[in-house]
C-alpha cells in the first residue's frame, strides 16, 4: 500500500521533498504515471506526491519577456490560451497534437517535460523557443535552460528534492518564423516517430540571424541541432547547400529502430523536415 500526499501549497510540497529526497513519485495529470503503475504494478512507488492541488503551479502569466506557464497547467488550457495562440502558435499546435482531447484535459506541460520521453510531444517546441525552466527547492529556486534539462535516456537535471515549478518562454524575435510538425503513427493518439520545431530569424537581407531547432524521437532525449544551427548562422537562404544540412542533421541526431519506425526513415525524414523548415515551405503541410 502506497502513501499519497496532496499538499495545498508549494512550500509544503518542497518541504516534503526535502525531508525525504528521492522518495516521492511526483504526479500531476497522471497520463503517463497511471499507465506505468497499471502495466507495471510492481514498480509502484511507496510515496506519491500529488502536485495537482498546488495553485502556484497552475496557469499562465504574460511577462515583459514572454510567458510563464505553471508546470501543472494542462495542455488543454495552454492550447486554448489566446496569448499562446498568438505569440507561441507552435506551442498551441504541439499541445493540440499531444494524445487526444481526453489526454490534453489532464496532461500537463511540466509532466510532459519531466516524464522525459525521447518522444515528448511538447519538447521540440520548447527547445525551439528557447524555454527556461524554473526549478524549485526548499532552499530556493534555480533557473535552467531547457536545452540542458535532458541528460540521457529518461534522465533529467532535476536533483533530489527539486520540483519543476514553471516554464518560461521568451517572445520569439520579431523577424522570426516557426515551423512545427509531428510525424506520428497516426493522426491522433499517436506517439511521434519524428517531430520537429524550428524558429528561424532572418534579417531584412534574408541573412539567417538565428536558427534554433528542437526534435523528438530522433535520439535518446529530445534534442537540439547545434551543428545545423551553426551552419545556418550568417548564411543567406540561397547559399545553403542541402547536402551540408543533411550531413549536419546526421551529426546532430542518433535515431534508432524501434517498434514504431526505422533508423533510415527517421534520419531521412528528419533531414527533409529540417530543410522544409529552413526553406520555409510551410505551405506544403497537408491541408488537413
Amino acid at each position: 500500500m502506497s502513501e499519497w500526499t496532496r499538499p495545498r501549497h508549494l512550500p509544503e510540497a518542497l518541504e516534503l521533498l526535502a525531508a525525504a529526497p528521492g522518495q516521492y513519485r511526483v504526479i500531476s495529470g497522471g497520463t503517463d504515471l497511471m499507465v506505468e503503475s497499471h502495466l507495471a504494478p510492481e514498480r509502484h512507488p511507496e510515496f506519491w506526491l500529488d502536485i495537482s492541488g498546488l495553485r502556484e503551479l497552475q496557469g499562465l502569466q504574460i511577462t515583459e519577456e514572454g510567458i510563464r506557464i505553471g508546470a501543472a497547467t494542462s495542455l488543454e488550457v495552454i492550447r486554448r490560451h489566446a496569448e499562446v495562440v498568438t505569440h507561441w502558435p507552435m506551442l498551441a499546435a504541439s499541445a493540440a497534437v499531444t494524445g487526444a482531447p481526453p489526454i490534453q484535459n489532464r496532461a500537463t506541460l511540466g509532466g510532459n517535460v519531466c516524464n522525459a520521453s525521447p518522444a515528448a510531444d511538447n519538447a521540440p517546441v520548447l527547445l525551439a523557443y528557447g524555454a527556461r525552466l524554473e526549478i524549485a527547492h526548499h532552499h530556493g529556486s534555480r533557473w535552467l535552460p531547457y536545452m540542458d534539462f535532458h541528460q540521457g535516456y529518461r534522465k533529467t537535471a532535476l536533483q533530489a528534492g527539486e520540483l519543476l515549478s514553471a516554464l518560461w518562454i521568451p517572445y520569439p524575435p520579431k523577424h522570426s518564423r516557426g515551423y512545427f510538425r509531428k510525424v506520428g503513427t497516426r493522426a491522433a493518439q499517436a506517439i511521434a516517430k519524428v517531430s520537429i520545431a524550428a524558429l528561424i530569424e532572418e534579417d531584412s537581407g534574408g541573412m539567417i540571424q538565428g536558427a534554433r531547432f528542437g526534435m523528438a524521437s530522433v535520439a535518446a532525449t529530445p534534442c537540439t541541432l547545434p551543428s545545423v544551427s551553426q551552419y545556418l548562422l550568417g548564411r543567406a537562404l540561397r547559399d545553403i547547400a542541402d547536402a551540408q544540412v543533411r550531413q549536419r542533421v546526421g551529426q546532430d541526431i542518433a535515431p534508432i529502430q524501434d517498434i514504431r519506425s526505422t533508423t533510415a526513415y527517421r534520419l531521412e525524414i528528419a533531414s527533409r523536415l529540417v530543410l522544409e523548415a529552413i526553406h520555409g515551405r510551410s505551405e506544403s503541410k497537408k491541408e488537413d
Binding site: V35, H38, D50, P102, I103, R106, Q189
Partner: peptide, 29 residues
C-alpha cells in the same frame, strides 16, 4: 485498454472529458 488509448472508460470530470483509467482517486476530492 487500461492505458488511456481507447476512451471506453471516458467520463466527465468537472465537465471535461477524461479517461477514468488514468485518474487517481486522490485527485477527485
Amino acid at each position: 485498454c487500461g492505458e488511456g488509448e481507447c476512451g471506453a472508460c471516458a467520463v466527465l470530470v468537472n465537465g471535461k472529458l477524461v479517461n477514468s483509467c488514468l485518474i487517481p482517486l486522490g485527485q477527485m476530492e
